[in-house]
């Protein structure tokens, strides 16, 4: 074991406590993982007597975010590792918010389209978002992966907050896409 590893674990623990990180995971996101994480977070929220409306919204956001990673995270090779369907998933909390954060690799050529889509969704008001959702549902065919491009619109509508995101370069072909969603704890 590397020297200082246990100290690292203790620091990591302190960071998690300080940021009230309830769940953090790095790796492949499968349906089993999705089910386990929502069950775990639901149990935590029940224990904390979180309002049921808040619980439902957190549940919604978690499912869409996890399914986004499992369906859309791109594969890239770094040494011997393959990163398809993998990413980081984190649930944390503040006084005011529950916070769901995801990060996954995406090919550079897809970045612009994704960024434009998020920007467009961020600029729409509630009625426009509803119209877009309906239009996507009618016209958007489910791909073989099952995604319908509806997840982002749904998250934006359920939380009534703008999507916060960033793209950070991993290699010249791949970017790391980060998305954070805040769910207000007072409804």
């Amino acid at each position: 074991m590397e020297s200082g590893f246990l100290e690292f674990v203790y620091d990591f623990y302190k960071s998690m406590k300080a940021h009230e990180i309830k769940l953090v995971y790095e790796g492949r996101v499968t349906q089993q993982i999705t089910k386990a994480f929502i069950a775990l977070t639901e149990a935590q929220m029940k224990e904390n007597a979180e309002a049921s409306t808040v619980q439902r919204k957190v549940f919604h956001v978690m499912v869409e975010c996890l399914q986004n990673i499992s369906r859309h995270a791109d594969e890239y090779e770094s040494g011997e590792s393959q990163y398809a369907g993998k990413g980081i998933f984190m649930v944390s909390r503040t006084e005011q918010y529950w916070c769901v954060t995801t990060g996954n690799a995406i090919f550079i050529e897809k970045v612009k389209e994704l960024k434009d889509m998020i920007e467009q969704i961020n600029e729409l008001n509630e009625d426009e978002l509803k119209d877009l959702y309906v239009r996507q549902m009618r016209e958007g065919r489910l791909s073989t992966k099952g995604g319908a491009g509806l997840g982002f619109i749904d998250i934006r509508r359920k939380t009534k907050k703008k999507l916060e995101y960033n793209f950070l370069p991993i290699t010249d072909k791949v970017s790391f896409f980060l998305l954070t969603t805040y769910i207000p704890r007072t409804s």
Binding site: F59, H60, V63, E64, Q67, M137, R138, G140, A148, I153
Partner: peptide, 12 residues
């Protein structure tokens, strides 16, 4: 009691 966005399309 809950459906995800992929299911919302099927409902339609």
């Amino acid at each position: 009691t809950y459906f995800n966005t992929a299911s919302s399309k099927i409902i339609l």
